[in-house]
Amino acid sequence: MNALELVGVTAGYGPYRALDEVSLSVPDGGIVALVGPNGAGKSTVARVCAGLVVPTEGRLLVGGDDLTGAAPWRIARAGLASVIEGRGVFARLSVAENLELSFGRWLGPSAAATALERTFDGFPMLAERRTQPAGTLSGGQQRLLSLAKVLGDSPRVVVADELSLGLSPAAVEDIYLQLRVLHAAGTALLVIEQQTDRVLGLADRAVVLDRGVVAFTGPPDGASPVVRRMLGATATPDSLAEPVSPA
């Protein structure tokens, strides 16, 4: 059974296309790494999974249910937890309130309190700042908080975009450790990363995206050379980003 599946998804923003018939799947309890150069459409995949961008073609399945075009809250209730790139926290709520908001949804009051304490044990940095508004945290700390929000309860599948963006080496270490724990508890993972080596070590499958299409699907070992070739192939550093007419 697949926890998450994209079937022939085409999506974009207004008139501009970012994904072209992308298919990928994350089996229950599996870890899939999604890598590729900037502008390849990785973040759009994350947004499609979260329901923030609705595909113009293709289907989105969560736990086998077709949720194409469903509102984000419906997808979240189907067991998919999203960590969007950038700031994924409520800046005006305190650290503890951010966590309570997440945990309280799914768990009873006492279980939520336990999850909260467990999270603070795992992230002492957040515990020190539990009453501070999340907006006053540094960029990296906000990132940690948005990850902590999905790590506390055990969703069916987690989609994490730009997992280690802006995190110190020690924090990256911590996050990967926590992901392993989460995975051991049965949660499937779709991890989108810029730092390919690390995530390919964690995953049991890899998908490489390039300019909106899937360039490679297979074992992680096979992905590294593909990515390296992709980044090395074109000489100018920014030719990737060349503006192109929408299809």
């Binding site: 150069p37 900037n38 963006l165 802006g166 810029q194 980044l231 090395g232 550093p237 990737l240």
Partner: peptide, 11 residues
Amino acid sequence: SSGLDARERAT
């Protein structure tokens, strides 16, 4: 370099 890929980092 945050959010840049390997090639952009090189630049």
